[in-house]
Computed example of a mutant assay.
Amino acid sequence: MRATRSWMLMRDGEAHRRLRGLANPLFTARAIREITPRIDGIVHQLMDDMGEGPGVDLIGSLAALVPVTVFCGLGGLPVEDRDLCRKWTDALGHVIDPAADEATRRVMNDAAEEFAAYIAEHLDRRRAAPQDDIISRLLLAEFDGEKLSDDEIIANVMMFFMGGHETTVNLIGNGILALLRHPDQLRILREEPGLIDNAIDELLRYDAPIQLVARITTGDIDLDGTTIPAGSKVMILLGAANRDPLRYDDPDRLDLRRTDVRPLSFGGGPHYCIGALLAKAEARLVFTELLRRHRNIQLTHGDIAWRPQVNIRGLRELRVDLTS
Protein backbone atom coordinates (compact mmCIF):
# COMPACT_ATOMS: atom_id res chain seq x y z
CA MET A 1 0.00 0.00 0.00
CA ARG A 2 2.86 2.39 0.72
CA ALA A 3 4.13 1.90 -2.82
CA THR A 4 0.87 1.74 -4.75
CA ARG A 5 -0.70 4.82 -3.15
CA SER A 6 1.88 6.87 -5.08
CA TRP A 7 1.30 5.12 -8.42
CA MET A 8 -0.37 7.41 -10.94
CA LEU A 9 -2.51 4.36 -11.78
CA MET A 10 -4.07 4.65 -8.32
CA ARG A 11 -4.51 8.42 -8.18
CA ASP A 12 -7.28 10.63 -9.52
CA GLY A 13 -7.97 14.29 -10.17
CA GLU A 14 -5.20 16.82 -9.62
CA ALA A 15 -2.84 14.27 -8.02
CA HIS A 16 -3.09 12.07 -11.12
CA ARG A 17 -2.75 15.04 -13.48
CA ARG A 18 0.45 16.12 -11.74
CA LEU A 19 2.10 12.69 -11.81
CA ARG A 20 1.02 12.04 -15.38
CA GLY A 21 2.16 15.45 -16.54
CA LEU A 22 5.64 14.88 -15.15
CA ALA A 23 6.00 11.45 -16.78
CA ASN A 24 4.19 12.04 -20.10
CA PRO A 25 7.21 13.48 -21.99
CA LEU A 26 9.01 10.16 -21.55
CA PHE A 27 6.36 8.22 -23.47
CA THR A 28 5.26 10.48 -26.34
CA ALA A 29 5.27 9.25 -29.94
CA ARG A 30 8.38 11.32 -30.60
CA ALA A 31 10.18 9.92 -27.55
CA ILE A 32 9.35 6.35 -28.61
CA ARG A 33 10.59 7.02 -32.18
CA GLU A 34 13.89 8.27 -30.79
CA ILE A 35 14.52 5.12 -28.76
CA THR A 36 13.24 2.65 -31.37
CA PRO A 37 16.76 1.94 -32.73
CA ARG A 38 17.87 0.97 -29.20
CA ILE A 39 14.86 -1.31 -28.78
CA ASP A 40 15.53 -2.84 -32.20
CA GLY A 41 19.10 -3.63 -31.16
CA ILE A 42 17.87 -5.31 -27.97
CA VAL A 43 15.35 -7.43 -29.93
CA HIS A 44 18.04 -8.53 -32.41
CA GLN A 45 20.46 -9.48 -29.62
CA LEU A 46 17.82 -11.46 -27.72
CA MET A 47 16.89 -13.35 -30.88
CA ASP A 48 20.55 -14.07 -31.59
CA ASP A 49 20.87 -15.50 -28.08
CA MET A 50 17.60 -17.44 -28.43
CA GLY A 51 18.65 -19.21 -31.60
CA GLU A 52 16.38 -21.75 -33.25
CA GLY A 53 15.47 -25.41 -33.19
CA PRO A 54 12.85 -27.55 -31.44
CA GLY A 55 11.13 -26.58 -28.19
CA VAL A 56 12.26 -22.96 -27.94
CA ASP A 57 10.34 -21.13 -25.18
CA LEU A 58 9.29 -17.81 -26.71
CA ILE A 59 8.18 -16.50 -23.32
CA GLY A 60 11.29 -17.18 -21.24
CA SER A 61 13.77 -16.64 -24.08
CA LEU A 62 12.20 -13.60 -25.72
CA ALA A 63 8.87 -12.08 -24.68
CA ALA A 64 9.67 -11.84 -20.96
CA LEU A 65 13.14 -10.43 -21.62
CA VAL A 66 12.27 -7.66 -24.08
CA PRO A 67 10.39 -5.24 -21.77
CA VAL A 68 12.63 -5.70 -18.72
CA THR A 69 15.81 -5.31 -20.83
CA VAL A 70 14.39 -2.25 -22.57
CA PHE A 71 13.31 -0.61 -19.35
CA CYS A 72 16.56 -1.35 -17.52
CA GLY A 73 18.37 0.43 -20.35
CA LEU A 74 15.93 3.35 -20.51
CA GLY A 75 15.61 3.61 -16.76
CA GLY A 76 19.32 3.78 -16.10
CA LEU A 77 19.53 0.43 -14.31
CA PRO A 78 22.24 -2.16 -15.07
CA VAL A 79 21.03 -4.59 -17.73
CA GLU A 80 22.81 -7.37 -15.88
CA ASP A 81 20.24 -6.84 -13.09
CA ARG A 82 17.30 -7.61 -15.40
CA ASP A 83 16.62 -11.06 -13.90
CA LEU A 84 16.43 -9.51 -10.44
CA CYS A 85 14.10 -6.75 -11.68
CA ARG A 86 12.00 -9.34 -13.48
CA LYS A 87 11.63 -11.38 -10.26
CA TRP A 88 10.38 -8.31 -8.40
CA THR A 89 8.14 -7.30 -11.30
CA ASP A 90 6.54 -10.74 -11.52
CA ALA A 91 5.74 -10.57 -7.80
CA LEU A 92 4.32 -7.03 -8.01
CA GLY A 93 2.04 -8.06 -10.88
CA HIS A 94 -0.27 -9.71 -8.36
CA VAL A 95 -1.12 -6.35 -6.78
CA ILE A 96 -3.98 -5.87 -9.26
CA ASP A 97 -5.15 -9.48 -8.94
CA PRO A 98 -8.40 -9.64 -6.92
CA ALA A 99 -7.73 -13.27 -6.00
CA ALA A 100 -4.27 -12.93 -4.40
CA ASP A 101 -3.91 -15.07 -1.26
CA GLU A 102 -1.95 -14.38 1.92
CA ALA A 103 1.21 -16.15 0.74
CA THR A 104 1.18 -14.12 -2.49
CA ARG A 105 0.73 -10.88 -0.53
CA ARG A 106 3.79 -11.70 1.60
CA VAL A 107 5.85 -12.25 -1.55
CA MET A 108 4.55 -8.94 -2.94
CA ASN A 109 5.48 -7.06 0.23
CA ASP A 110 9.01 -8.46 0.22
CA ALA A 111 9.41 -7.60 -3.46
CA ALA A 112 8.11 -4.05 -2.95
CA GLU A 113 10.59 -3.36 -0.14
CA GLU A 114 13.55 -4.89 -1.98
CA PHE A 115 12.74 -3.18 -5.28
CA ALA A 116 12.20 0.19 -3.59
CA ALA A 117 15.57 -0.02 -1.83
CA TYR A 118 17.26 -0.96 -5.11
CA ILE A 119 15.72 1.99 -7.01
CA ALA A 120 16.51 4.37 -4.12
CA GLU A 121 20.18 3.44 -4.39
CA HIS A 122 20.22 4.31 -8.10
CA LEU A 123 18.22 7.48 -7.44
CA ASP A 124 20.95 8.72 -5.10
CA ARG A 125 23.53 8.04 -7.81
CA ARG A 126 21.52 9.97 -10.40
CA ARG A 127 21.09 12.87 -8.03
CA ALA A 128 24.87 13.15 -7.80
CA ALA A 129 25.44 12.55 -11.52
CA PRO A 130 22.33 12.82 -13.75
CA GLN A 131 22.33 10.90 -17.04
CA ASP A 132 20.01 10.54 -20.03
CA ASP A 133 17.67 7.99 -18.46
CA ILE A 134 14.17 7.84 -16.99
CA ILE A 135 15.24 8.06 -13.34
CA SER A 136 17.29 11.21 -14.04
CA ARG A 137 14.48 12.77 -16.06
CA LEU A 138 11.92 12.09 -13.34
CA LEU A 139 14.33 13.54 -10.79
CA LEU A 140 14.72 16.76 -12.80
CA ALA A 141 11.17 17.04 -14.19
CA GLU A 142 8.92 19.96 -13.21
CA PHE A 143 5.17 20.38 -13.78
CA ASP A 144 3.45 23.63 -12.76
CA GLY A 145 6.52 24.41 -10.66
CA GLU A 146 6.44 21.12 -8.75
CA LYS A 147 8.81 18.17 -8.67
CA LEU A 148 8.30 14.55 -7.73
CA SER A 149 9.31 13.39 -4.29
CA ASP A 150 11.76 10.50 -3.96
CA ASP A 151 8.95 8.20 -2.82
CA GLU A 152 6.89 9.15 -5.88
CA ILE A 153 9.80 8.50 -8.26
CA ILE A 154 10.56 5.13 -6.68
CA ALA A 155 6.91 4.05 -6.67
CA ASN A 156 6.28 5.04 -10.29
CA VAL A 157 9.47 3.44 -11.60
CA MET A 158 8.19 0.25 -9.97
CA MET A 159 4.83 0.81 -11.64
CA PHE A 160 6.44 1.38 -15.06
CA PHE A 161 8.32 -1.92 -14.71
CA MET A 162 5.23 -3.83 -13.60
CA GLY A 163 2.81 -2.31 -16.11
CA GLY A 164 5.23 -2.41 -19.04
CA HIS A 165 6.25 -5.97 -18.30
CA GLU A 166 2.76 -7.47 -18.03
CA THR A 167 1.29 -5.76 -21.07
CA THR A 168 4.23 -6.37 -23.40
CA VAL A 169 4.99 -9.97 -22.41
CA ASN A 170 1.37 -11.00 -22.80
CA LEU A 171 0.78 -8.99 -25.98
CA ILE A 172 3.70 -10.82 -27.59
CA GLY A 173 2.91 -14.26 -26.14
CA ASN A 174 -0.85 -14.17 -26.69
CA GLY A 175 -0.34 -12.65 -30.12
CA ILE A 176 2.10 -15.30 -31.33
CA LEU A 177 -0.15 -18.07 -30.01
CA ALA A 178 -3.17 -16.58 -31.79
CA LEU A 179 -1.24 -16.42 -35.08
CA LEU A 180 -0.02 -20.00 -34.74
CA ARG A 181 -3.59 -21.16 -34.10
CA HIS A 182 -4.75 -19.20 -37.17
CA PRO A 183 -2.21 -20.05 -39.90
CA ASP A 184 -4.25 -18.19 -42.52
CA GLN A 185 -3.74 -14.95 -40.55
CA LEU A 186 -0.05 -15.71 -40.02
CA ARG A 187 0.31 -16.16 -43.77
CA ILE A 188 -1.45 -12.83 -44.39
CA LEU A 189 0.98 -11.03 -42.08
CA ARG A 190 3.96 -12.64 -43.82
CA GLU A 191 2.61 -11.62 -47.23
CA GLU A 192 1.55 -8.13 -46.12
CA PRO A 193 4.04 -6.89 -43.48
CA GLY A 194 2.55 -3.41 -43.81
CA LEU A 195 -0.43 -4.72 -41.81
CA ILE A 196 1.68 -4.98 -38.66
CA ASP A 197 0.17 -1.99 -36.81
CA ASN A 198 -3.39 -3.06 -37.56
CA ALA A 199 -2.43 -6.64 -36.69
CA ILE A 200 -1.20 -5.57 -33.25
CA ASP A 201 -4.48 -3.77 -32.54
CA GLU A 202 -6.46 -6.83 -33.66
CA LEU A 203 -4.32 -9.16 -31.52
CA LEU A 204 -4.85 -6.81 -28.55
CA ARG A 205 -8.58 -6.98 -29.19
CA TYR A 206 -8.69 -10.72 -29.72
CA ASP A 207 -6.80 -11.74 -26.56
CA ALA A 208 -6.20 -8.80 -24.21
CA PRO A 209 -3.14 -8.95 -21.88
CA ILE A 210 -5.20 -7.36 -19.10
CA GLN A 211 -8.73 -8.75 -18.89
CA LEU A 212 -10.34 -6.47 -16.32
CA VAL A 213 -9.86 -3.21 -14.45
CA ALA A 214 -11.51 -1.73 -11.35
CA ARG A 215 -13.14 1.69 -11.33
CA ILE A 216 -15.30 3.72 -8.93
CA THR A 217 -18.33 5.44 -10.44
CA THR A 218 -18.32 9.22 -10.16
CA GLY A 219 -22.06 9.47 -10.81
CA ASP A 220 -25.15 7.30 -11.14
CA ILE A 221 -25.01 5.11 -14.26
CA ASP A 222 -28.04 3.51 -15.92
CA LEU A 223 -27.18 0.19 -17.56
CA ASP A 224 -30.06 -1.58 -19.29
CA GLY A 225 -32.55 -0.37 -16.69
CA THR A 226 -30.32 -1.03 -13.67
CA THR A 227 -28.85 1.93 -11.81
CA ILE A 228 -25.27 1.66 -10.54
CA PRO A 229 -25.04 4.30 -7.79
CA ALA A 230 -22.26 6.88 -7.58
CA GLY A 231 -19.35 5.69 -5.48
CA SER A 232 -19.76 2.03 -6.48
CA LYS A 233 -16.76 -0.14 -7.22
CA VAL A 234 -17.19 -1.83 -10.60
CA MET A 235 -15.11 -4.42 -12.41
CA ILE A 236 -14.92 -3.64 -16.13
CA LEU A 237 -14.33 -6.69 -18.31
CA LEU A 238 -12.03 -5.41 -21.06
CA GLY A 239 -11.75 -8.82 -22.68
CA ALA A 240 -15.53 -9.03 -23.05
CA ALA A 241 -15.84 -5.46 -24.35
CA ASN A 242 -13.22 -6.22 -27.01
CA ARG A 243 -15.49 -8.99 -28.30
CA ASP A 244 -18.77 -7.09 -28.07
CA PRO A 245 -20.91 -8.22 -31.06
CA LEU A 246 -22.57 -4.78 -31.09
CA ARG A 247 -19.15 -3.24 -31.79
CA TYR A 248 -17.46 -5.86 -33.99
CA ASP A 249 -18.86 -8.22 -36.60
CA ASP A 250 -18.03 -11.86 -35.83
CA PRO A 251 -15.99 -10.75 -32.78
CA ASP A 252 -14.62 -14.22 -31.95
CA ARG A 253 -12.81 -14.38 -35.30
CA LEU A 254 -9.21 -13.19 -35.63
CA ASP A 255 -9.02 -10.91 -38.67
CA LEU A 256 -5.84 -8.91 -39.20
CA ARG A 257 -7.57 -6.97 -42.00
CA ARG A 258 -10.45 -5.93 -39.71
CA THR A 259 -11.12 -2.18 -40.00
CA ASP A 260 -11.72 0.38 -37.26
CA VAL A 261 -10.11 -1.76 -34.56
CA ARG A 262 -9.90 0.19 -31.31
CA PRO A 263 -9.28 -2.28 -28.49
CA LEU A 264 -9.81 -1.27 -24.87
CA SER A 265 -6.88 -3.44 -23.77
CA PHE A 266 -4.90 -0.40 -22.57
CA GLY A 267 -7.89 1.14 -20.82
CA GLY A 268 -9.30 4.53 -21.68
CA GLY A 269 -9.79 8.10 -20.54
CA PRO A 270 -7.32 9.79 -18.16
CA HIS A 271 -5.96 6.38 -17.09
CA TYR A 272 -5.17 5.15 -20.61
CA CYS A 273 -1.90 3.21 -20.27
CA ILE A 274 0.96 5.71 -20.40
CA GLY A 275 3.28 3.07 -21.88
CA ALA A 276 0.93 1.84 -24.64
CA LEU A 277 3.07 3.25 -27.45
CA LEU A 278 6.19 1.66 -25.98
CA ALA A 279 4.49 -1.75 -25.65
CA LYS A 280 3.25 -1.56 -29.24
CA ALA A 281 6.70 -0.55 -30.50
CA GLU A 282 8.32 -3.49 -28.73
CA ALA A 283 5.71 -5.92 -30.06
CA ARG A 284 6.00 -4.52 -33.59
CA LEU A 285 9.75 -5.10 -33.64
CA VAL A 286 9.45 -8.60 -32.15
CA PHE A 287 6.76 -9.81 -34.57
CA THR A 288 8.53 -8.30 -37.58
CA GLU A 289 11.94 -9.77 -36.77
CA LEU A 290 10.59 -13.16 -35.68
CA LEU A 291 8.75 -13.62 -38.98
CA ARG A 292 11.74 -12.34 -40.96
CA ARG A 293 14.15 -14.80 -39.35
CA HIS A 294 11.97 -17.89 -39.19
CA ARG A 295 10.02 -19.15 -42.17
CA ASN A 296 8.58 -21.98 -40.13
CA ILE A 297 7.14 -21.56 -36.61
CA GLN A 298 5.11 -24.40 -35.14
CA LEU A 299 3.79 -25.23 -31.69
CA THR A 300 5.92 -27.94 -30.12
CA HIS A 301 2.89 -29.50 -28.46
CA GLY A 302 -0.75 -28.68 -27.91
CA ASP A 303 -0.63 -28.26 -24.13
CA ILE A 304 -0.71 -24.55 -23.27
CA ALA A 305 0.08 -23.46 -19.71
CA TRP A 306 -1.60 -20.20 -18.68
CA ARG A 307 -0.67 -18.15 -15.65
CA PRO A 308 -3.23 -18.42 -12.81
CA GLN A 309 -4.11 -14.73 -12.31
CA VAL A 310 -7.71 -13.64 -12.75
CA ASN A 311 -7.06 -10.35 -14.52
CA ILE A 312 -3.69 -10.91 -16.21
CA ARG A 313 -4.02 -13.14 -19.27
CA GLY A 314 -0.64 -14.59 -20.15
CA LEU A 315 1.30 -17.78 -20.79
CA ARG A 316 3.76 -19.45 -18.46
CA GLU A 317 5.67 -20.63 -21.51
CA LEU A 318 5.20 -21.04 -25.25
CA ARG A 319 7.25 -23.85 -26.75
CA VAL A 320 7.73 -23.67 -30.51
CA ASP A 321 9.89 -25.28 -33.18
CA LEU A 322 11.78 -22.61 -35.10
CA THR A 323 13.51 -23.06 -38.45
CA SER A 324 14.95 -20.50 -40.84
Rank of each mutant, 00 (worst) to 15 (best):
Y118Q: 09
E142Y: 00
L140I: 10
E166R: 00
P130I: 02
N156C: 01
S136A: 09
E114Q: 14
R125F: 06
A141I: 03
T168G: 07
E166F: 01
E152T: 01
F115H: 06
M158C: 07
F160R: 01
Q131I: 08
H165Q: 01
N109K: 14
N156S: 02
G145W: 05
F143G: 00
H165C: 00
L140A: 14
I119F: 09
N170P: 02
G173R: 12
A111G: 10
A155P: 01
G164H: 04
N170G: 04
D124V: 11
L139A: 05
A129M: 14
D151M: 08
L148D: 00
I119A: 05
M159K: 00
G163T: 14
I119Q: 03
M108T: 15
G173E: 12
I134W: 11
A111I: 09
A111M: 09
P130W: 04
D133E: 11
L148W: 00
Y118D: 09
S136G: 10
E121M: 12
F115C: 03
D110E: 15
N109G: 15
E142C: 02
R125W: 06
G164V: 03
Y118C: 10
L123K: 06
M158Y: 00
G173Y: 11
G145L: 06
A129L: 15
I172Q: 09
H165F: 09
I134E: 03
E114T: 07
A112Q: 13
R127Y: 01
F115Q: 03
M162W: 07
E121L: 11
D144H: 12
R126G: 01
E166Q: 02
I154Q: 05
D150K: 04
F160Y: 03
A112G: 14
V157W: 02
L138N: 02
V169C: 08
I134C: 05
T104E: 15
D144L: 11
L148R: 00
E152I: 01
H122P: 09
I135Y: 06
M162H: 10
L171W: 05
M159Y: 00
G164L: 06
S149L: 08
V169E: 05
A129R: 15
D110Q: 15
F160A: 05
A117F: 06
H165Y: 11
